[in-house]
Simulated assay, not measured.
Amino acid sequence: MTAGARTRARIVFLIRVPQARREEFLAAYEKIRYAVANGVPGHLRDQVCRSADDPERWLITSEWRELRDFLAWEASPDHRELVRPMRECITEASSLRFTVVAETAARTPV
């Protein structure tokens, strides 16, 4: 890594959403995702995934240009207000923050 180079960040949320709140959770995520993707500095992409083994276990990952972009967004009043409807559906949550050290992608055939 060269001096001044940016290090992307990956944020992982492991959550539990009761089946009775699944549709409400997905509707709240749908409202949030484009607002974040189109308006939050440093946000690159995100995914929401449901466990193949436990329908109440979910994973949300997001990728950021830099960890400080995510931390600034997370600390903002806009963040808390925007994600409140989604968080109201969640009964358990934990989060992890990582910086990307190396990445491998499939090559496109020539």
Rank of each mutant, 00 (worst) to 15 (best):
Y29A: 12
L26S: 02
A20P: 05
R80V: 13
R8M: 13
A35M: 10
D69V: 02
D46K: 09
D53K: 05
T91V: 09
T99K: 12
P77S: 01
F70C: 00
R8T: 12
C89S: 02
T99F: 04
R33K: 07
D78V: 13
E66F: 01
R10K: 15
T91S: 11
T104V: 14
H43T: 02
V100E: 11
S76E: 01
F25M: 08
R6C: 06
D69P: 01
R6I: 07
V101L: 14
V36F: 07
M1T: 14
S51N: 00
A72Y: 03
V40Q: 11
A105I: 13
A27N: 08
P77Q: 01
R21I: 00
L14S: 10
L67A: 01
G42A: 04
D53A: 09
T61L: 09
P18F: 06
L26G: 02
A106L: 15
A106H: 11
A28I: 02
A93D: 10
L14N: 11
V40F: 05
A72K: 13
R65M: 08
L71G: 05
L26W: 08
R65W: 12
I15K: 09
S76D: 02
I15S: 14
D46C: 07
D54I: 01
I32K: 13
T99S: 14
T99D: 13
F13H: 08
Y29H: 06
T104Q: 11
D69N: 03
H43Q: 01
A72I: 10
F70H: 06
R8N: 14
V83I: 09
R87S: 11
A105G: 11
A9M: 02
V36M: 06
V101K: 15
F25C: 07
L82Y: 09
P85D: 03
S62Q: 06
E66D: 14
E24K: 09
W64S: 03
G42Q: 03
A105D: 15
M1L: 13
H43A: 06
T99C: 12
L82H: 05
A106N: 14
S95I: 07
E30V: 07
E24F: 04
M86L: 10
A75H: 11
E56I: 00
L71A: 15
V101M: 07
L67Y: 02
L14M: 05
F98G: 05
F70G: 01
W58H: 00
V17D: 04
A105C: 13
I60C: 00
V40L: 02
L59M: 11
N38G: 15
P85M: 08
E74W: 03
A102Y: 14
R45E: 15
Q19E: 12
G4Q: 12
D78R: 04
L96P: 08
R10W: 03
E74T: 04
E81Q: 15
A20W: 06
A28M: 06
C49F: 00
A27P: 08
L67D: 00
S95C: 09
V17L: 01
Q19K: 11
G39N: 05
D46V: 00
Y34R: 14
R80P: 03
R10V: 12
E24Y: 04
W58N: 00
P18H: 12
T108S: 15
M1C: 10
R68A: 15
A27D: 07
R45S: 15
R107Y: 05
S51F: 03
R57D: 03
V48D: 01
H79E: 11
A37Y: 14
C49W: 08
L44N: 01
P77C: 01
R87M: 10
A93F: 02
